[in-house]
């Protein structure tokens, strides 16, 4: 089915697309049909810069288990950052989110 279910995130992020680096203005995360991954549904992430047109986009398509592994990887990286490099509330939130996933 087409879920259309979408999380809209406002991130401070740069992404590299076919025309080089751009500053992401919007990020969407959704579980729906992939374009390329040979799965019926996938967890998709789009980094977008609408002011530069629809083609300024970096897209990821992951199967559900891979998406969870990526999320774990991100949280683990943030939780392991040496003290002082990221705000403590970010590292603490990462540790707290990681615990139930372990």
């Amino acid at each position: 089915m087409c879920t259309y279910q979408t999380e809209h995130l406002s991130l401070r992020a740069s992404a590299k697309g076919p025309s080089g680096w751009f500053r992401a203005e919007e990020t969407t995360v959704y579980f729906d049909h992939p374009v390329d991954l040979p799965e019926e549904h996938s967890l998709n992430v789009d980094f977008l810069a609408p002011s530069q047109g629809a083609s300024t986009r970096v897209a990821l398509e992951l199967d559900a288990a891979s998406a969870l592994a990526l999320a774990r990887g991100i949280l683990t990286s943030l939780a392991k950052v040496p003290e002082g490099l990221v705000p403590e509330e970010v590292a603490g939130a990462a540790r707290a989110a990681l615990a139930p996933l372990a």
Partner: peptide, 20 residues
Amino acid sequence: REAPGASPDDAAAVARAAGG
């Protein structure tokens, strides 16, 4: 209208984010 000239997958990403 959402994505004139964009590739179909880029256009679909814009349209789906807007709810169809």
